[in-house]
Structures are given as C-alpha cells and as structure tokens.
C-alpha cells in the first residue's frame, strides 16, 4: 500500500517537473520564434494600413501584395542570382583549399605542421570590421595594377575571394580534426603502393572525408549566403549586390516601408531555411564534427 502511495507521489512530482519544464521551454521557444512570426505578420499587412491605424492595430486587410511588390520593385531574382554567383564558387574553393591544407598538416609530419594549422585557425578569429579598410585599399591597389579598379572591388571575384580567405581557416580546422581520425594505416599502404602526394589526397583521402565536406558545405553556404558586411563594403553597384545587402535598398531616406522590407526578408531567408530542412542531418553532424578528436 505504502509503496503505491509513494509511487503515486513520485509520479505526481515528476509530472509537475515535466509541466514546469514544458512551460519553460514553451516560453523560450515563443520568445525565440516571435521575431520570425512578427516578420511574417508584418509582411502580410499593407503599409497604408499600418500608417493609418498603427502597428498594433487589428488588420483591415491581409494579403501577399508585399511579396509581389518585392519581386517587382526589388528585382529580387537578380539579387538571388548574385547570391548564387558568390556563394557557390566561394564554397567550392573554400572546401578545396581547406581540404588541401588539412590534408598536408594532418597526414604529413613536418616542422611547421602545427604552427601552420594554428595560423589558419587564428585567422578565423579576426573580426572583419578590423580589416575592411586595408582590404578595400588592397582591392583598389590590385585593381590599379591590372588597370581596372573594378577587377576585385565592386566585383563578384572580390567577394568570392574575401569569403574564401575568411572561411578557409575554419574549414581547415574542421577537416584536419576529421582527417586525424582516419587510420594512419590507410595512408601508409597508399604510400607503399606508390601513390604520389596528389593521388594520395585525391583518390584516398578525399573519398573518405565526404561526410565532413557535406556538412561543411551546408554550413558555409549558409554563412556566405547570409553575409551582409562584405557585400555592403566591397560592392558599390546595386545590380551586383547579393540579396542580403540588396534588401537595404528598401530603406528610404525618410520613409521605410517595413512591410515590404519584411516580405523581402522572408524571401531572402527562405533558401537557407529550405536548405536546413532538406539537409538537416548534415547540419547537425556539422555541429559535432571533429569533436571526438582535436
């Protein structure tokens, strides 16, 4: 009898705990998702409605006009294409360079392998805002050298290169951690069989690091796609802007149509959200990548 009562008590307290935790999580989930919901809500309301009746008023009309307007006024497709032109080459080059360096520092022992890895990883810690003026001048200077100031500055090439420069460090770090988990024997037998350094990399290691490459590829795509700063600083021509900084054009000098801006923001965020749902597994494995051996 008493054990049953105790069981009951235990279960009750457990229930209370569960309820508390659920409320707690629910509350923070709401706080977390509120800005997104609010953005969607805003994007459905016409600007004139908000101006006339206030932000917190009950809506008179809800429609998708802002989305159509975003496509029509914003040339949003052009901005999307620009994002693709920058993101895809940048991710591929970053992964290629990152895997090359990771391969060398993890599969071959030489004096500078550790310092080399440290240098690449440390570069990752450098805040972009610290270096943007020198980068800007460097771009102009290189442009003057080749006789075309728009060679790097205000060009896709410049944006791609700066992303490669900033992301290679992280890619190297993650890939080298992963490569260290690949048994040495595989490399040794490849070398014994007479594989050159490049064959060793291309035919032996590269096929083995597909999972981290996929995970990194997904992460990098999101990061580079989401970049706002470099696109703002290094591109002066609106038609070359990627979607993130292209959206800025919707802010007027005096009047900003936040409803239209919200629709644009939702559209800009859509690809990464879709990417996340399609490649959820890679995302999550990306978070723990290389965490077992460092």
């Amino acid at each position: 009898m008493s054990t049953i009562v105790q069981d009951q008590k235990y279960r009750n307290s457990q229930k209370r705990k569960d309820a508390f935790i659920s409320t707690f999580i629910g509350f923070f989930a709401f706080v977390w998702i509120f800005p997104i919901l609010w953005t969607i809500w805003t994007s459905l309301r016409p600007y004139s409605d908000v101006v006339s009746y206030g932000v917190f008023s009950w809506p008179k009309r809800l429609n998708f006009d802002n989305y159509f307007a975003a496509f029509k006024q914003m040339h949003i497709l052009g901005y999307f294409l620009n994002s693709l032109y920058v993101t895809i080459p940048a991710v591929i080059i970053t992964l290629f360079l990152g895997s090359l360096i990771a391969f060398i520092v993890s599969r071959y022992k030489f004096k500078f392998s550790l310092p080399l890895l440290l240098v690449f990883t440390a570069g990752n810690m450098l805040p972009a805002v610290l270096v943007y003026i020198p980068v800007f001048w460097m771009y102009i200077w290189v442009g003057d050298l080749v006789g075309n100031r728009n060679f790097l500055y205000n060009n896709y090439l410049g944006l791609i290169l700066i992303h490669v420069a900033f992301q290679t460090g992280f890619a190297t770090f993650v890939l080298s951690s992963y490569m260290k988990t690949i048994p040495k024997e595989i490399s040794e037998s490849a070398i014994v069989d007479g594989a050159s350094v490049f064959t060793h990399y291309w035919r032996v290691i590269l096929p083995l690091i597909r999972p981290p490459l996929a995970a990194l590829g997904v992460l990098m795509t999101t990061w580079i796609y989401n970049d706002f700063f470099w696109a703002l600083i290094l591109v002066s021509q609106d038609s070359k802007r990627p979607i993130t900084s292209g959206l800025r054009r919707l802010n007027g000098e005096f009047v900003t149509d936040f409803n239209l801006l919200a629709a644009g923001a939702i559209l800009a965020a859509a690809p990464t959200v879709i990417l996340f749902f399609v490649l959820r597994k890679q995302f999550i494995s990306g978070l723990t990548l290389g965490s077992t051996k460092g």
């Binding site: 003026i133 800007f136 102009i140 100031r149 728009n150 500055y153 205000n154 703002l232 600083i233 002066s236 800025r248 054009r249 802010n251 007027g252 000098e253």
Partner: peptide, 16 residues
C-alpha cells in the same frame, strides 16, 4: 540606400 551611401561616402568616393 541613402544611409549606407551617407555613412560610407568617403570610402565609396575613393573607390569607383
């Protein structure tokens, strides 16, 4: 964008 243009004016004018 009017704000960005104003804030980055010196830099933009030194570029292209």
């Amino acid at each position: 964008n009017s704000d960005d243009f104003q804030n980055n004016f010196v830099q933009i004018m030194q570029g292209t």
